[in-house]
C-alpha cells in the first residue's frame, strides 16, 4: 500500500496536537494536588488530556492511510514541536547539544522506520 498524502498531513497535524499535551501537563504539574475538587479545576490538566487523547485518535485514523514504516518516523517530529513550545511557553532553554540530540533521534527513528 502506498502512503497517502492525507495520512502524512494528518500525522504531522497529530504530532502538533499531541505536543500540546506535555506542555500543558508541565503547566498542570506545577500546581498538582490530589484533592479531587482541585483536580477538576486544573484546566491545564484537562486540556492536556484532551489534546493528548485527540492526537492518539488522529494517529489511529492516519495509520490506516499508509505504511507504518513511513508514518511511524514522522511521529518523531513531535520532539521538534515540544522543544519549540517549551522555549516559548515554559521558559526552558535549548542549546546545541539538545538540538543535536533531537536531530539524532529523528534520524535514528527514520532509519528504524526504513529498515522495517
Amino acid at each position: 500500500m502506498a502512503t497517502q498524502l492525507w495520512a502524512v498531513i494528518l500525522i504531522i497535524f497529530g504530532t502538533f496536537v499531541g505536543s500540546l499535551g506535555p506542555i500543558l501537563f508541565k503547566k498542570a504539574s506545577d500546581k498538582l494536588s490530589f484533592n479531587p475538587f482541585k483536580l477538576i479545576k486544573n484546566y491545564m490538566l484537562i486540556l492536556g488530556f484532551f489534546f493528548y487523547g485527540l492526537s492518539l485518535i488522529i494517529y489511529l485514523i492516519a495509520i490506516r492511510g499508509g505504511e507504518l514504516s513511513v508514518l511511524y518516523p514522522l511521529v518523531s517530529i513531535s520532539y521538534i514541536w515540544v522543544s519549540l513550545l517549551s522555549i516559548k511557553y515554559l521558559n526552558e532553554k535549548m542549546n546545541l547539544y539538545k538540538w543535536l540530540g533531537v536531530i539524532m533521534i529523528i534520524f535514528g527513528v527514520s532509519m528504524i522506520g526504513i529498515a522495517s
Partner: peptide
C-alpha cells in the same frame, strides 16, 4: 534486526545521551 535497524537504535540512544549532556551544560 537488520544492520540498519541496529544503527538506528544506536543513533536514537546517542541522541538521548546528547540531550542529557545538553542539560548538564545548562
Amino acid at each position: 534486526l537488520s544492520l540498519m535497524k541496529i544503527a538506528g537504535v544506536f543513533i536514537v540512544i546517542l541522541g538521548i545521551s546528547f540531550i542529557a549532556l545538553g542539560s548538564k551544560k545548562h
